[in-house]
Every structure is written in structure tokens, then in C-alpha cells.
């Protein structure tokens, strides 16, 4: 009769409430960051044929791994579809969800999650067949619109057209690939998703990009950013501040290339950020040079942007709203001090 007793004890042990602040310890203990990413959105998180992950969301994971573990390669990527992503985070399967996820009230307040910071300001737009000669989304009356399920996109679509008093027919697909395939086979007159993805879809997925146009309207705000579990303030702060540090590094002109030189800069703000004069890492439970490590691993925010979605990438997206606040954009990091 020993087995049941042991089982029961184990169950009770397993049942004991978790302690706050243990994500950092766990990550350190297994010397690996588990990062939830998408199953493939080029520019944000996508695996190449070798199984290497690339993209902005992936670089955020790498930056955090660098800051925490001093090794940007110590990341395990868990590809998640739209439905799986929140439960994977809630259940502790992943430490961090960095998967072009829109920050909304419902998600922030009712799913047991915390959005950390915005890493990309996006908006929802439309891609239509050029031959329809449409110049505005308001002309999409009765149109069939292909959309991928499991995103805020479906809801925005419903809201916006309801507000306009226009009826449209959404055709909802479970998978990105299926929705794309249907649109380009002519099943729908329009395709809708985040504008960042539309540019890529038009240039890379269309049989002939010139047959399609992106409509000017953005029908929603889509602030995308990494998400962590509730109840672990320490980890929440780390993720948030690593992102702020990457933005601040761009503000001060610290790049992957000039990092070592900048460490000798007399500017006190740069000194603080790179762990020269003050130990800002101690407050986060990290080492002194946490921010320097992150920048060394992936570059500053601007470099991450250019490499993955900007001019140095196939997507060629303009900075737009994602420029720094002092350059006409929305990116504004609280000061590291």
C-alpha cells in the first residue's frame, strides 16, 4: 500500500502554489530560455530550412537570453499557433511569448498575462486584386475577405465594417498558408491582416505582385509585443527593461559595431546603460553588463528593425510609427537610470 501514499504525496507536492519570481531562477537553472514564437511569419519569427529562427520577435528572445544567460544562442523556440500561444504561456510551457501578439484589454486583464512593452506598432490593412479598381476599404461592400483565424484581425474586421454599416463576408482559415492559398487562387476579393505582413505577402507570396494593391486604410491599432505570465514581477521587469534598453541604445547611437568604443564614452547616460559607472543590473537581478550583452547579441532596436523587416530585409518596411520619438515615431523608452 506504499504506492498510493507516495502518489498522493507527490500530487500534494505538485499542488503546492508556485512562488513568485521563479522564472528567472528556472531559466538560469536550465541555462535556457523557452520562447514561444509563431509557426512562421517572415520578418518576425520564421525558421529557415536549417531550422534556425530569424525575425524581430526572435531577436527579442535572443536579447533577453543574452542579458540573462550571457549567451544569445541559449533559447529554445516553441512554435505556437494562434490558439496555443496563451495556454502555452499560462501553463508555463514557455517563459516568454514573443509572437506578434496584439496588446488588448481583454488579453491583458483576463488571461493571466502581462504585456511588457510594444516592439512593433502595426495596424490592420487590406490587400485587394488590382483589377477590381478599388481605392478604399469602404468600397468592399459584399466582398469576400480571406482572414486567418485566431487573431484580433477577425474581430477588427467585424467591428470596422459594422461601424461603416457595410456587410462583408469573412472566409476564415485555420492556417496562414491556407488563407494565402485561397486568396491568391481568387477565392476572395480581399485579404486582411497586419500591414507589416501585407507588404511581404504582396511582394513574396503573390504570383504577380503588380496584380495586387494594399489599400490605404488601417482599420485598427495593433501594438505588438512580448507577453509574460502574471505573478512574476521580477521577470516582467527584466523583459520590459531589456526592450527599453534596446530602444535606448538606438537613441544614444550605441550599435553592435561600436559597443566596445561606446563603453569608454564619457556620457553618464551611456555609462549607466552599459554598466560602466552604475550597476543597473543589480536592481533587476542581473549582472552589471546586461544591456551591453543584449546590444552585443542583436544590436540596438534600429538594427533589429533594419535587419529583419526594414531596408536590409526582403520586406523593406519603412520605420513609420516605429521610429524613435525624437524622429517622428512612437518609440519612447523610459530612461534606464
Amino acid at each position: 500500500m506504499r504506492l498510493p501514499i507516495i502518489t498522493l504525496t507527490l500530487l500534494l507536492l505538485a499542488h503546492a502554489p508556485a512562488h513568485a519570481g521563479k522564472t528567472l531562477d528556472q531559466v538560469r537553472q536550465r541555462a535556457q530560455l523557452t520562447c514561444g514564437v509563431s509557426t512562421g511569419v517572415i520578418g518576425f519569427s520564421a525558421a529557415d530550412s536549417q531550422g534556425h529562427w530569424n525575425g524581430m520577435d526572435v531577436d527579442i528572445c535572443r536579447a533577453i537570453a543574452a542579458a540573462v544567460l550571457n549567451d544569445a544562442a541559449k533559447v529554445k523556440y516553441v512554435p505556437l499557433n494562434a490558439q496555443q500561444r496563451f495556454t502555452a504561456l499560462q501553463s508555463g510551457e514557455i517563459d516568454l511569448l514573443s509572437r506578434n501578439t496584439t496588446w488588448t484589454l481583454t488579453r491583458d486583464a483576463s488571461l493571466g498575462l502581462h504585456f511588457t512593452a510594444v516592439t512593433y506598432y502595426d495596424g490592420q490593412g487590406f490587400l485587394v486584386q488590382k483589377k477590381l479598381k478599388i481605392s478604399s476599404a469602404k468600397q468592399l461592400k459584399n466582398a469576400e475577405i480571406c482572414v486567418q483565424s485566431g487573431t484580433t484581425t477577425e474581430k477588427n474586421l467585424g467591428d470596422w465594417f459594422k461601424a461603416q454599416g457595410i456587410k462583408v463576408k469573412p472566409v476564415v482559415f485555420e492556417k496562414f498558408e491556407a488563407s494565402i492559398k485561397a486568396f491568391f487562387s481568387g477565392r476572395c476579393q480581399a485579404y486582411t491582416t497586419d500591414a507589416s505582413a501585407l507588404a511581404f505577402i504582396r511582394s513574396k507570396e503573390a504570383p504577380n505582385p503588380d496584380d495586387y494593391v494594399v489599400l490605404p486604410e488601417l482599420i485598427s491599432k495593433e501594438p505588438l509585443g512580448p507577453v509574460v505570465r502574471r505573478g512574476d514581477d521580477e521577470w516582467f521587469a527584466i523583459v520590459k527593461w531589456v526592450i527599453f534598453a534596446l530602444i535606448e541604445a538606438e537613441e544614444y547611437g550605441i550599435t553592435q559595431a561600436n559597443l566596445e568604443r561606446m563603453k569608454a564614452s564619457p556620457d553618464p547616460a551611456i555609462q549607466r546603460l552599459l554598466g560602466g559607472a552604475e550597476d543597473s543590473g543589480k536592481l533587476l537581478g542581473l549582472e552589471r553588463d546586461w544591456a551591453a550583452r543584449a546590444v552585443k547579441a542583436v544590436g540596438n532596436y534600429g538594427e533589429i528593425f533594419q535587419r529583419n523587416v526594414g531596408s536590409a530585409s526582403p520586406l523593406k518596411l519603412p520605420r513609420g510609427a516605429n521610429a524613435l520619438w525624437n524622429k517622428g515615431g512612437l518609440l519612447y523608452a523610459p530612461p534606464v537610470r
Binding site: H15, Q90, E144, E154, F161, G231
Partner: peptide, 25 residues
């Protein structure tokens, strides 16, 4: 307990709230 601790809302109250998405046919 897991859900409470993680601050996840539960219950069937959402059923009576507006769905918010469209159904094609």
C-alpha cells in the same frame, strides 16, 4: 487553482457577450 493563481478568468459568462466576429455563411 492553477487558473486562479495565474489570474485566468473562467466561466461561461462570455457566452452572452457579443461575439464580435463575423460568420461568412
Amino acid at each position: 487553482a492553477n487558473m486562479r493563481e495565474r489570474g485566468i478568468r473562467s466561466g461561461f459568462d462570455f457566452l452572452l457577450e457579443p461575439a464580435g466576429f463575423g460568420i461568412g455563411e
